[in-house]
Computed example of a mutant assay.
Amino acid sequence: MDAPASSPPEDAGASAASSTTALDTSVADGIVIVDKPAGVTSHTVVARVRRLAGTRKVGHAGTLDPMATGVLVVGLNRATRLLGHLQLADKSYDATILLGATSSTDDAEGEITVAATPEALASVTASAIEAAVEAYRGPISQIPSKVSAIKVDGKRAYERVRAGEEVELKARNVTISRYDVLDIRTVAGGIEVDISVDCSSGTYIRALARDLGADLNVGGHLTALRRTRVGAFDMSSAHTLEDLGESFTMLPIAEVAADTFPRFDADAEQAAAIRTGRPLPGLKLTAGVQTAMFDPDGTFLALYEPHGPLAKPTAVFVS
């Protein structure tokens, strides 16, 4: 799926140039931005990173469907705990929609259930496509794809669909901050529309394809999907699995924390308290946001937030 949720460690910073580390990755803490290939699951990518890094403590944020490619944010060791604190709600995608056919899964991996007539397709103009897209810009209410990973009575929606069950999912509010039509072209059996989208977490690009086809009365489904950005992480810092196999490249946890959060450099006495998660009085931290706490040597220790006269930890990353 074009997936909104973080996975647990067993199976997200900045787009700055990544740092090749000579550290033993089995004990190093950091973030790896993987350019996920098509045809494999996000879980498979995590398993490959585990082998390359020599550690089992690997987790990812924001699952991608097997057919999808692009940015997958992967954490190593203690950085797996940082994933849930990073601002990864906003995402960007490049995709191709095929108008003219409805798919059982809203994408190319499903069976075609309804195909439009040539007469119906001939009535779909570029201006009609642009007008239909306009309705999906900004805050919208979207019904997720039936083959999403959303749980229905404790069971994933896609599992129920595969078992032959009828699934009805509730609409959810999402925001499409950018929805650009890049190209429109006629192909055998339909019309291909290349799009580029910036959206909030929880948005299903497959559902955008489905709904665009429905609005134009010809049906539609997704045929290609590439995630180009998750939060501040984009393709400029992404590495293929092949590249990582030749030279394992990661963003150290301290670098990610310094680039993502306001920074506080503690003195030795404060650092000792932070290491054990003790509240600190008298610190002027920014209200409403987490602050990355560093010791005098530049080691990232913890995330703290102000609570009245005290600064208290939200997560401690050292023992």
Score class of each variant (00 low, 15 high):
Glu130Asn: 09
Ala149Gly: 03
Ala132Met: 01
Ser127His: 02
Val174Arg: 03
Asn173Cys: 09
Asp90Leu: 06
Asp180Val: 13
Gln87Glu: 13
Arg162Tyr: 02
Ser145Val: 00
Val161Asn: 04
Thr105Pro: 08
Thr105Gly: 04
Ala131Pro: 00
Arg160Phe: 14
Val167Leu: 10
Ile97Arg: 12
Leu121Asp: 02
Ser104Leu: 05
Arg178Ser: 07
Ala120His: 05
Ser104Met: 06
Ala101Phe: 08
Glu119Ile: 13
Lys151Ala: 15
Ala115Val: 14
Pro139Gly: 00
Glu119His: 10
Gly100Asn: 05
Gly84His: 03
Ala115Thr: 12
Leu86Phe: 03
Ile143Lys: 06
Gly164Asp: 04
Ala171Tyr: 12
Glu134Trp: 05
Lys91Ile: 09
Leu88His: 08
Leu99Gly: 09
Ser103Ile: 09
Ala132Val: 00
Tyr179Phe: 13
Asp180Asn: 14
Leu98Pro: 09
Ser123Trp: 04
Val152Arg: 04
Gly110Tyr: 00
Ser103Met: 07
Val114Gly: 03
Leu99Trp: 09
Val161Leu: 02
Leu169Ile: 12
Ser123Pro: 04
Thr102Asp: 11
Glu165Val: 11
Arg137Asn: 07
Lys170Thr: 12
Ala95Asn: 11
Ser148Met: 00
Glu166Thr: 14
Ile112Phe: 07
Ala116Pro: 07
Ala122Arg: 05
Gln142Ile: 13
Gly100Ala: 04
Ala163Cys: 02
Gly110Lys: 12
Ile150Asn: 06
Ile150Thr: 06
Ser123Ala: 14
Ser104Asp: 05
Ala108Lys: 10
Glu111Gly: 10
Gly164Pro: 00
Ile112Glu: 15
Thr96Gln: 10
Ser141Arg: 11
Ser123Phe: 11
Glu109Phe: 14
Glu109Lys: 05
Ser103Lys: 01
Ser141Glu: 12
Asp90Pro: 02
Asp106Gly: 01
Tyr158Ala: 04
Asp107Pro: 04
Val167Thr: 08
Ala101Lys: 02
Ala157Val: 13
Tyr93Trp: 13
Lys146Asn: 13
Arg156Asn: 09
Tyr179Trp: 07
Val133Ala: 12
Leu121Lys: 06
